[in-house]
Structures are given as structure tokens and as C-alpha cells.
Amino acid sequence: MATEKIEHSQLPIRGLNLHIAHIGATGSPTVVFLHGFPEIWYTWRYQMLAVAAAGFRAIAPDFRGYGLSDQPPEPEKASWKDLDDDLLAILDSLSVPKAFIVAKDFGAMAAYNFALLHPDRVSGVVTLGIPFISEAFSSAFTEIPEGYYLSRWRVPGRAEADFGRLEVKTVVRNIYILFSGSEFPNAKEDQEIMDLVDPSTPLPPWFSEEDLAVYASLYEKSGFRYALQMPYRSLKESLGITNPKVEVPVLLIMGGKDYVLKLAGYEDYIRSGMVKEFVPNLDIKFIEEGSHFVQEQYPDEVNELIVSFLKNQI
């Protein structure tokens, strides 16, 4: 794969140097890719090449505190508003008046926030794995067991102790194995999340040891301190958006075997179209064999959906 064609820059953004990966002509329509956890810009390698080949400019930042971007001085004060302000500053720094946003996992939440706060800067949104969920409606998805990783990682110090028993590479490996399954990752009372993965379990066939090495090298640099604050310990932060409605065109791509569909009420919220109450101009596509990492597992199918969506909005 021609990842060597992807260029890298550091941008001075709001007192930090933020890393961006980029490919494509400066004057082309811009697509910004926002990663989730445990991902970094590299998770979008297939999609960046595909949209660039289709005539778009692809930009994939590492969020502050992730990958090759600087750590904020006080990670415990992580804020969704910072992610919003960072993205706005990145677009301004690159003289991009309007962009498409493609996002996954907690990056999808940042993308929807940005579309609500700055609709004039957004041409359209594609999210993977996470639909739009308003603050008022999120109570429908609060039936989360104590042993679920979201519950465990919200507790200061617990994930740090769990991760600290292992090498960084093993932590990333375990999370990729765990999150690529279709089973709800739920630990027993006497277990930690890392205990859910048998050390002999192989990586998913679509994720190589070389891919793992790229992720691990960047988490060895950044650590997990900020990543545990954003998103896990910042999920209840409110941006004060009342009566939210995302008016821009949106495409939601879901893996049919994504474990998050087993959250109470989650799959019905999507498949019934109830989500369209908040996102009226929404198209929903399922890749039925896809996991939480559908963009890496089935890159060709995901690329086709994204490129078709982008071209339909031009």
C-alpha cells in the first residue's frame, strides 16, 4: 500500500503542535478524518488514499494528546470544546473554508458537535460506528454494566493500573482483538479489561504485526494519560447545545457485527430510523460482517461508500 505518498506536517494550533497526515491537491475539496480510540491518523490510511485518488484532499489529524501531536499541559482538563476549537483552527490554518468530515468512534461525536456549532464550515459528515445521540436522548443508552470497559475506564487510576501491567504494544494488541469481536466486552468482578484477552489470541487477519507496530510506537510516545480523559472521562461534559439537529448531509456506516450494537436500545435506534429525528438528511449503510474497525477490515467497501457520498455532495 502506498502510504509513503501520505505527507506529514506539524501545525501550531492554540499553543500546541498538532500533527496532520495529508495527501491531495491543495485546491481540491477537503475531507478531514477524525480517529477514535485506540486509533491515530494511521487508521484512515486506506480511506485517505482512496479519496485522494477520487480528486479530494485528505487531512487526518492526530487529536491533541494522541500520536504525534503534543500533549496538553493539563490532560485531566480534557474538553470536547478543545477538540472543536482545534478543528476550527486547523481549517483556518490551512485556509479551508468548508470541509467534509469523516469520523469514527469518539471522533464521530466531535464531528457532530462541529457540524452543530459550525454548519457553515461543513459540507457533509460520514461517521462509522457511532450515530448521533443528543444529550437529552443519551439516557436511553445508560444501561451499562459495571464490568463494561466504558464503566471501568471512567474510574481514575483503574485503567492505568490495568494497562501498566503490560507493554504498550500488548495493550494496543489486546484492545484491537477485544474491540474487533462481536461480543460485548464485559469483565467479571475479579477481572480487569486486559484479562479478557487470552495472550495466545492472534490479531484479526486484516490487522498485521506491522500495523500494530505503527500504533504501538505512537502510544509509546503519547502514553494513555490523555486518551483515558478524552473520551472516557469526559463523556458527560455538556456543550450546552439545546434542541440539536444536524442539518448537513450525513452518512452513517455501521458494521453489522460491531459489539456496540449490543448496548441496550442502540441497534433499534439506528435500524428503526429513530436517529433521523436528530439527523434528517441521513443515509444509513450496514456492512453486515463488519466489526468496530470496519474501515480497516473492509476498506474497499467503506471507501466506495465514502467516495460515492462525497461525489454526490459536490
Rank of each mutant, 00 (worst) to 15 (best):
S93E: 13
L116K: 01
D92P: 02
D105G: 06
Y112T: 02
I101W: 01
Y112S: 03
P73F: 14
Y112K: 02
I90M: 09
D105T: 01
A108Y: 01
S93Y: 12
V126I: 09
L87Y: 04
F114D: 10
H118D: 15
S123F: 12
A89R: 04
Y112Q: 03
L83I: 00
L88G: 15
R121M: 14
V126F: 11
A89H: 05
P73I: 14
P73K: 15
E74D: 11
P119D: 14
P97Y: 07
D82P: 11
I90G: 12
I101C: 01
D105K: 00
L94M: 15
I101P: 04
Y112A: 06
V125H: 08
L116C: 01
E76I: 07
L116W: 06
A103I: 07
V102H: 09
K81M: 07
L87T: 05
P73Y: 13
D105L: 01
A115E: 07
L94E: 11
T127G: 03
I90H: 04
S123R: 09
A78V: 06
A115L: 12
P73N: 10
D82Y: 06
I101V: 04
E76C: 07
V126W: 07
E76H: 08
F100T: 05
S95W: 04
M109P: 01
V102G: 06
R121D: 12
L91W: 10
P73E: 14
S93L: 09
L117F: 11
M109E: 00
A78E: 08
L94A: 14
P72T: 08
A115R: 03
A108W: 01
A115K: 02
K77M: 13
V122S: 06
Y112M: 05
Q71M: 15
P119Q: 09
V96M: 13
V122C: 11
D92Q: 09
S123V: 10
A110F: 00
S79P: 04
D120V: 10
V102Q: 10
I90R: 14
A99T: 13
R121F: 12
S93C: 14
R121P: 15
R121L: 14
V122W: 05
P73C: 14
F106A: 15
D92T: 12
D92C: 09
